[in-house]
Design a protein around this nucleic acid. Structure first.
Lengths: 126, 126
DNA sequence: CAGCATCCTACAGGATACTG
DNA sequence: CAGTATCCTGTAGGATGCTG
């Protein structure tokens, strides 16, 4: 399988530490980002709603995740100067577009998780 | 949440710590797995060839990565009892099939990395 | 050549408590 | 409500040296 021109695999950029794929992988590879994006996919949510939707995230960590998402232009943060405060998080268009590739991962995962688990069990026997 | 039947996003499994997507994300989210899979995509390679192809991996870490891939049935390891030793790593069919979703990530990354970087810079100004 | 054994450190992630 | 401020720990990843 020497060449398969056009595929993302032949561009050889993955060896570069600043490679785009690495950048994105570092983002979605963390513990909560994909979950947050998924929850926001159906519409804007408040901080507490996200917290509840996830279950078991320390507020500090959720804040970190959201701030990073905001910094990368994937999420907007809108604070309403009320008392008590209200903050709305919403996916940007860029954030929404991320759903497609993530769905590709999710679909592959669900179709193949059994094979992985089986291989794992078999391997752990021996 | 509201329901948008069919999409991988509404299955609500991501909240489950044992969710398939989390499992795969934990795999490909690490530092070297995607790179190894990419290198093996064009054909089998020896340990040293992988090392060279990556550049800067500690042998221990590369071994860990390969063992994990082997355990999950994504890579086969074939040791030839010669002196000096020769070990060939090769993608399984399952391993090859992983290339597609990873390519989806890679494509999205390359198309949008500029937007992310721009958002990042803009955000860091303010 | 293809690794294992050992030691080490940075940092992601978490627990807990407090506040504008 | 939506966070900060602190403190703490597990572990991924790395550096170095040795061996069948």
């Amino acid at each position: 399988m020497v060449t398969e021109q056009g595929s993302a695999f032949e561009r050889g950029k993955l060896t570069d530490p600043d490679c785009p794929t690495r950048l994105v992988l570092d983002r979605i590879g963390d513990k909560w980002t994909v979950l947050v994006v998924t929850l926001l996919a159906d519409g804007p949510l408040r901080f507490t709603q996200l917290r509840a939707g996830i279950g078991g995230v320390a507020p500090k960590v959720l804040t970190q995740t959201l701030r990073a998402l905001e910094r990368d232009g994937l999420v907007t943060r809108t604070a309403y100067p009320e008392i008590p405060p209200k903050v709305i998080y919403e996916l940007t268009e860029l954030g929404h577009s991320l759903r497609a590739p993530v769905a590709a991962i999710a679909d592959w995962s669900e179709r193949n998780v059994n094979r992985i688990l089986a291989a794992r069990t078999a391997h752990d026997q021996a």
